[in-house]
């Protein structure tokens, strides 16, 4: 068996185990939280009788271990169950939200990743001169400001004052593709500002590191232009750390954007998860948690594989 194939199988198996562990952790976490779904749903209008009726209907009197395994077996068969709070099919409502989240993450990544790498390359080319300082200054400033503040500022000037894009980034099935793109313009812009600096700085650092190697000096002596050296000789050797940081940021774009979702009223998974945590809707929290864990584990797996494949020494072990 090819060692790479073996490695992939090993990693995937480990990932599945991690997912299982994550589901246990999430379940324990939701049990530690004070109150339960019946109390949260009925709120101030709860009476002891209505609470008891609702708990009985939702099966909350079963022991936690039984509830966990019931959920696990159903989930293994692809049935995520129904939400305790509103009785909706979790697979269906979650699917829609996941689609929205991926849609936003995808377009933010399409803009942010090439831009970050390009700016990183430019910064290396003009190292310590004004373009480098300007790029670093702007991106570091934007990462240092809390994203909700950038969101509000952008919303005020672009949506309210200029009226260019909508401040409510609500998308739904009846919208055309262009309408959707128009709706998410502002959140994509804010998310780009948020993730740009990390990736751009990493690209710059990784390439600068390689630039000090002897073969770069050789390339320079050959008379190659600066950009060709960076593109052909430095970049391929710096790809592993860059992919790593890109993957971390992609994962962030999927699982960590709840603040931007709230500010721009975007119907993604973050708000969906927060609402259900607040109401102690355990099956939904479990399902969301699993998806988020899967995204993290999956993207890290990809990052590992890319860094192995991009390095001949790891690709052909002795």
């Amino acid at each position: 068996m090819h060692p790479i194939f073996k490695l992939v199988v090993q990693r995937v198996a480990l990932s599945l185990f991690l997912l299982l562990a994550a589901s246990v952790m999430i379940f324990i976490g939701t049990q530690i939280l004070p109150g339960d779904v019946a109390q949260s749903v009925l709120g101030q209008s709860a009476t002891p009788e209505t609470l008891a009726n609702l708990r009985k209907e939702l099966g909350l009197y079963d022991p936690p271990v039984t509830r966990y395994f019931n959920w696990l077996f159903a989930a293994l068969q692809g049935d995520l169950g129904t939400a305790l709070t509103n009785g909706r099919d979790i697979g269906e409502s979650l699917g829609k939200r996941l689609n929205n989240t991926l849609f936003l993450a995808f377009w933010a990544a399409i803009v942010a990743v090439p831009l970050a790498i390009f700016l990183g390359l430019v910064a290396v080319r003009y190292q310590n001169r004004w373009p480098d300082k300007l790029i670093s200054g702007v991106t570091l400033t934007s990462i240092s400001i809390p994203e909700f503040l950038i969101g509000y500022v952008v919303m005020y000037f672009v949506a309210v004052k200029l009226g260019w894009f909508s401040s409510v980034a609500m998308i739904n099935d009846s919208m055309t593709f262009l309408m959707k793109l128009n709706a998410i313009a502002l959140p994509v812009f804010v998310l780009t500002l948020v993730v740009l600096a990390h990736m751009m700085r990493m690209t710059r650092a990784a390439i600068l590191n390689v630039m000090q190697s002897a073969y770069i000096e050789t390339a320079e002596l050959k008379g190659l232009s600066m950009f060709t050296i960076i593109r052909k000789h430095a970049f391929p050797n710096a790809i592993a750390p860059i992919v790593n940081v890109v993957m971390i940021n992609l994962a962030y774009l999927v699982v960590g954007v709840v603040v931007v979702e709230v500010v721009f009223v975007y119907p993604g998974m973050g708000q969906y998860l927060v609402d259900h945590v607040a109401k102690r809707d355990v099956p939904v929290v479990q399902a969301c948690g699993l998806i988020f864990a899967a995204v993290y584990i999956g993207l890290n797996l990809v990052a590992d594989l890319v860094s192995i494949l991009s390095n001949p020494r790891l690709r052909h072990p002795k």
């Binding site: 749903v41 709120g43 709070t85 509103n86």
Partner: peptide, 11 residues
Amino acid sequence: STNTLDPALTA
């Protein structure tokens, strides 16, 4: 996101 149209559970 947890809302339902069931009048009994409206809060």
